[in-house]
Amino acid sequence: MISIKEMSERPVRLTEGHRLCAGCAEPIVAKQVLLATDKPVVVANATGCFEVSTSGFPQSAWEVPWIHTAFATTAATVSGVESAYVALKRKGRVSEDIRFVAFGGDGATYDIGLQALSGAIERGHRFMYVCLNNEAYMNTGIQRSGATQRGASTTTCPSGTCIPGKKELPKDLTKIIAAHKLPYAAQASPHNWKDLIAKAAKGFEANGPSFLNIITPCPRGWRYESADTITMAKLAVETGMWPLYEYENGKWSLTGETKRIAEGKMERRPLSDWLKAQGRFKHLLDPEWKDVVDDIQNSLDASWDELLRLTKL
């Protein structure tokens, strides 16, 4: 793990002046990820907040080569870039040792781009895919995605008298990706930057595809004050809603606060701390939806137990 001093000397790859919202976790996560390597980097980006807000023509917040094609295609696009790199390097037309990273939101990753991502991982291209997971389609106005949590209110599953927000559980995407038996996959959170950067460094150096699923709080979609983004990320981990773990060459291991909780060195915070902190869940505090909260608690406990079982294998 490199020091903060060393990191401070690394070039800035995503500059200030982009148009992301105040309090958005995306540029924080991206900067942490991009600090994790001193190699030249080429970035691919799915359509979404991050793409729209960093690339408005004729300006660009990117100090590194950057490509966006469409919503579903980031993993396929980076596959093409990496294949060209392999061919051109073989021919001696490119000399640098380049790293490739793809950024996509949860809509681009869990939903529309899942096929392209699965294909790219199966083909074994050497690239790192980073999911900026803010748990809904925030760019288009907070619509539910396959990553949206049960009980969260969005514009396409608004809480009211009929439904308690989203009725379904999110996909467990990190495990779906791990099922591809790729060299490296992990879940991370920007509040624990040391853990995140260490994981990104492993992902960059993996000899094949790697995947980081990163909780990326969104003040607009989650309904909290924009100053509280890092607090929300921390809460997600400390309540067990977003466990930190790695899948490395077939082996599962816990990291950060998740590991400390599992080892009994700190308490897992109650689910209610998570729900009451965000406007998207506030309706769940009404006794009317107690069954839903119980369901969320049960699935949280089941996922937690399953993860502990995996990491003890």
Partner: peptide, 9 residues
């Protein structure tokens, strides 16, 4: 998409 990526590369 791969052709686009490779050609841009």
């Amino acid at each position: 998409s791969m052709c686009i990526g490779a050609s841009a590369a």
